[in-house]
Simulated assay, not measured.
Amino acid sequence: MPHLDLLADPVDLCAALVDVPSVSGEEGELASALEAALRAQAPHLRVQRSGHAVLARTELGRDKRVLLAGHIDTVPIAGNVPSRRDGGLLHGCGSSDMKAGDAVFAHLAAALDDPRHDLTFVFYDCEEVEAVRNGLGRIEREHRDWLAADLAILGEPTNGAVEAGCQGTLRVDVAVRGRRAHSARSWLGDNAVHKAEAVLRRLATYAAREVEIDGCRYREGLQAVRIAGGVAGNVVPDECVVTVNFRFAPDRDAAAAEKHVREVFDGFEVTLTDLSPGALPGLGEPAAQEFLAATGAEPTAKLGWTDVARFAALGIPALNYGPGDPNLAHTRDEHVDPRLITEAVDVLRRFLA
């Protein structure tokens, strides 16, 4: 089992985390290394293992509790493990998404033995795959008390900015029916692919909404992401399905988002296939205000879905804040600027210590 020095330079710790492969579902070795390091180097923390997730927390009786959460899994490795340094940057699978954030949190877990707020650290598994496997869901079911907090900070890559809340996401299949025929006698059929043009026209003329919540501007979007139709090279198709993704502002709940999409495609056969509600910013909460003061940053809306939504569903204000670059996530050339790691440690230390 690899040894992790949590009190070392957090940049070196990030490299050490990258060097332990942890593709979704295969995080066991890294989880065991983190668990061993926390038990040995952070005696002030109570440590709990949950599958391939590791939980740790202080129990100092403070008035407020802050939770710092980061997933330890990565997408499949693309020839980018072990880590390497090049041009002042740290390269490697997961370096940006989100082992840089994990390194910041793990370092602070060991270094802050007398924080002004009680702290909970959650290093969880299977974020990069289907939602039913996400380790946060298992932790909620089996160790719900470990997720209680006044503020949750998710270490998703934000380039050191504060991104508040997140959009919701919904997918539907819009089906168009026709009548099958031999293409040599096409007048006997009714081409469903041709008829799908009416669906695409509604998408092309759709006016996406923008809404400001807590000073953060969220932009919605309704987009076709897949079209499936056709039987054979000599057959008029009798079915065409357009898959549509709706990214919606968090002032819409799940039911309102679904209702809106069904109204847009009124008259068509619509089947809901995926739905995850968003998260309101929650910037008015005192703990969130304290964190913003420590960063000195103006928060922006999170244009995308993250696990902050899971905390929002539990009534916990949650923010995205991490040292990685979201545009580099999942790329072969994934890397992180070490200066952002150092800056994140300084900001969180200022907030927590």
Results as ranks from 00 to 15, higher is better:
M1L: 12
H3S: 13
H3N: 08
L4N: 07
L6P: 06
L7H: 14
A8H: 05
V11W: 12
E26F: 12
S32P: 02
A33T: 07
L34E: 09
E35D: 13
A36R: 13
Q41M: 11
P43S: 08
H44M: 05
L45D: 10
R46W: 06
A53M: 06
R57Y: 05
G61R: 12
R62G: 04
D63Y: 01
D63V: 14
K64E: 15
K64G: 14
R65I: 05
V66W: 11
L68I: 06
A69W: 10
A69K: 09
I77G: 00
A78Y: 07
V81S: 04
P82S: 07
L90N: 08
S95M: 11
K99Q: 10
A100C: 14
D102Q: 14
H107N: 11
F121Q: 08
F121I: 13
Y124A: 04
Y124I: 02
E127T: 06
V129T: 14
V132E: 15
R133C: 12
L136Y: 08
L147A: 05
A149H: 00
L151H: 06
I153F: 09
E156W: 10
G160Y: 02
E163C: 13
G165F: 00
T169S: 15
R171I: 00
D173T: 05
D173P: 01
V176E: 00
R179M: 04
R180S: 14
A181Q: 07
H182C: 10
L188V: 11
D190G: 01
A196P: 05
L200S: 14
R202G: 11
R202L: 15
L203P: 10
A207H: 14
A207F: 03
R209A: 15
E212G: 08
G215E: 03
R217G: 03
Y218M: 02
D238I: 05
R252P: 01
E258C: 02
K259D: 09
K259P: 00
H260I: 03
H260D: 10
R262E: 00
E263H: 07
V264L: 05
V264P: 04
G267K: 03
E269W: 04
E269A: 12
E269L: 10
T271Q: 04
T271G: 01
L272P: 03
L275F: 04
L280H: 00
L283Q: 01
P286Y: 05
Q289C: 02
E298Y: 01
T300C: 07
K302C: 05
K302T: 05
G304W: 00
D307V: 00
V308K: 00
A313M: 11
I316P: 01
A318K: 10
A329W: 09
T331M: 11
E334A: 11
E334W: 06
I341S: 14
T342C: 07
